[in-house]
Design a protein around this nucleic acid. Structure first.
Lengths: 201, 201
DNA sequence: CAAAAGTGGAACATATCTGTTCCATAGAAG
DNA sequence: CTTCTATGGAACAGATATGTTCCACTTTTG
């Protein structure tokens, strides 16, 4: 894992990406399917990932990195808490198929990397607590529940898009829904900023 | 399907229920597993549902009925729109494992019965539109999106419970979240009724 | 009680996916 | 150009789930 020839790195990525694409559409897909989409022989897949579980594990690790990167980009420590969550939601949204995989692939949710609390989890927890302290986030909603809501709304958004809904509008609705759900009732200052305020009647 | 002896009906139900229980925990579970939990021989399962797909189809149909019944019980045409959605959410919540199956079992979401719009869908659509007209529901959130949000929050709630969260408290948070998310900003009358108002700081 | 209905288990055939080995060849790197 | 890396494909072995058949046994039902 230390260093790989460029070709090896490229093939590896191709397989990983293909796997995410294929498995997010059909979690029961065979390795042949993955190989086909990756434009690679089935043998090659086994060369990189001896067992199916190795591939899944690699996907998990890859996803974990992407989540970490997305969380970092959202800079959760900066600005009003609700705006920070907005940014986080947008970043996670970009994970696309990978996001769906986390929900839909059984072996993914049970896999080791997600059991332990990641830095991303901790950052979100800190953010929610800050939101509570600053009066921006509904004090009745604790960090774990906020996390559940965030992910499930993202899931809802992507499902909706899969059903043919326009991407951008759906994203806007998702953000709006999340923001309203989490906003403290006392503090309404930031709740309406951004998306479609003027459409309000 | 016309009439079945009592024994047959009971065995059939046992298999169906066992299947929901087992498959909601492991979508890849074999028919042997289902048979074992149902307290029935594998042969018997095949007698009632010749192919795996037949079993899945039967579960789908069964679930569809339960959803219809739950929707009817919620009496969506009565009372303020937000309260009606509250009732609906509580009714659906009771579906338990069946609810998770709809999300997690791939063959379930693609299955025929869900494609066409059911009476339950139409009732919800009418409710949302009524909510818009009466100023109770956020006009920016249309019926399909409201439906997505409703189901995904239920999914979030059950996932949270699976993770060890207390059932009742989670349900309360789920309702609160949904209500706030859907409430129109103009109309705040009903937004706070019920769950944990006195815990507000 | 006797016939009929319902059941369980063994045995078998079949399909599919997995994981492995081997070899010839294409492509990169020196 | 030559060497070495990476690859694709065929062929094979093993595991697992599916679906079927048959028969003896139990329970219901008339």
């Amino acid at each position: 894992m230390v260093d790989e020839s460029r070709t090896r790195a490229r093939t590896r990525r191709a397989i990983l990406d293909a796997a995410v694409t294929v498995l997010s559409k059909d979690q029961g897909a065979s390795l042949s399917d993955v190989a086909a989409v990756a434009g690679v022989g089935r043998t090659t897949v086994h060369r990189y990932f001896p067992e199916r579980s190795d591939l899944l594990e690699a996907i998990g690790a890859d996803l974990l990195e992407k989540v970490a990167a997305a969380t970092a980009r959202a800079k959760l420590a900066e600005g009003p808490a609700l705006e920070a969550i907005d940014r986080l939601c947008q970043e996670y949204f970009e994970l696309g198929d990978g996001l769906m995989l986390m929900f839909e692939l059984p072996e993914m949710m049970n896999w080791a990397g997600w059991e332990e609390e990641t830095e991303a989890d901790r950052a979100l927890t800190r953010l929610v607590e800050r939101g509570h302290a600053e009066g921006d986030i509904d004090p009745e909603l604790d960090a774990p529940w906020v996390q559940q809501v965030l992910w499930s709304l993202l899931y809802a958004a992507w499902s909706h898009i899969r059903d043919g809904a326009p991407k951008h509008a759906t994203m806007a609705r998702c953000l709006r829904t999340l923001r309203k759900a989490l906003a403290s009732d006392v503090d309404r200052r930031d709740g309406q900023r951004g998306v479609g305020r003027d459409l309000q009647r």
